[in-house]
Amino acid sequence: MMEIGRLPNPRAAQALVDYLRGQGVSCRIQQAEHGVIVSVEREQDYSRARAEFDHFISHPYDAKYLQASWEHGDMHAGLDYGAPALALFSRFLTGAGPVTLLVFALCILVYGAMQLGLAQQTYSLLSFFGAVSNGHAEVWRLFTPTLMHFSLMHISFNLLWWWYLGGKIETRLGTGPLLLLLLVAGTLPNLAQYLLTGPNFGGLSGVVYAVAGYTWVMGIKKPQAGIGLPPAYMGFMLLWMLLGFFDVLGMSMANGAHLAGLVIGLGQGWLDSRKP
Score class of each variant (00 low, 15 high):
T187A: 05
Y81I: 12
G97W: 00
M148G: 00
Y123H: 13
S127K: 00
Y194E: 05
F143L: 07
F89W: 15
L126H: 00
C107K: 04
L181W: 00
S90C: 14
L88C: 11
V139C: 11
M114W: 03
L181Y: 03
F143P: 06
L118Y: 12
T175H: 10
L195G: 01
L195K: 00
H149C: 05
L106M: 11
I169L: 01
H149V: 02
L188H: 01
L106K: 09
G167N: 01
F143R: 10
L116Q: 08
F143A: 09
L182Y: 12
G117W: 06
L125T: 11
Q121E: 14
M114I: 06
I169P: 10
G95L: 09
T144Q: 04
F128E: 03
Q115R: 13
L88N: 11
V184D: 08
W140Y: 08
H136F: 14
H154N: 11
Y123N: 14
L118W: 11
S156W: 10
I108E: 07
L109K: 08
L101E: 08
R91H: 14
L147H: 03
Y164L: 13
T122I: 04
F104Y: 06
S127R: 05
L178Q: 04
V103N: 10
F92I: 08
L182D: 02
G176A: 15
A192E: 01
A119K: 13
L125E: 11
T171V: 12
F129Q: 09
T187L: 07
G135I: 05
Q115W: 01
W162I: 02
L159F: 02
L183Y: 08
L181N: 08
A119H: 12
A192T: 08
L152N: 11
A137T: 15
C107E: 04
W163K: 06
P84W: 03
T175A: 13
L195P: 02
L188C: 05
L116D: 08
Y123P: 11
L180W: 13
G176T: 15
W140R: 05
L159C: 07
Q115D: 10
L109A: 15
K168D: 14
P177D: 11
I169C: 01
G112R: 02
A137H: 15
F143V: 10
L183N: 09
Q193V: 00
T144H: 00
F92R: 10
L181T: 01
Q115I: 09
G167S: 05
G186C: 05
G174S: 12
H136A: 15
A185H: 07
V139Q: 09
P145R: 03
M114V: 04
L183I: 14
H136N: 12
T94E: 12
S124D: 12
L106N: 00
A131E: 08
V139A: 13
V110K: 00
R172Y: 06
Y81N: 11
L195E: 10
W162H: 02
P189I: 09
A96V: 06
T144I: 03
L125G: 06
V139F: 12
F150L: 09
L116K: 10
E138S: 05
L102D: 07
L101Q: 02
F92T: 10
G117M: 02
L86A: 15
T144M: 02
C107P: 03
L183M: 15
I155A: 02
V139G: 07
F150K: 00
Q121W: 07
V184G: 08
L109R: 08
A96D: 04
W140T: 03
S124A: 14
L165E: 03
P189H: 05
G97Q: 04
L180E: 02
V132K: 02
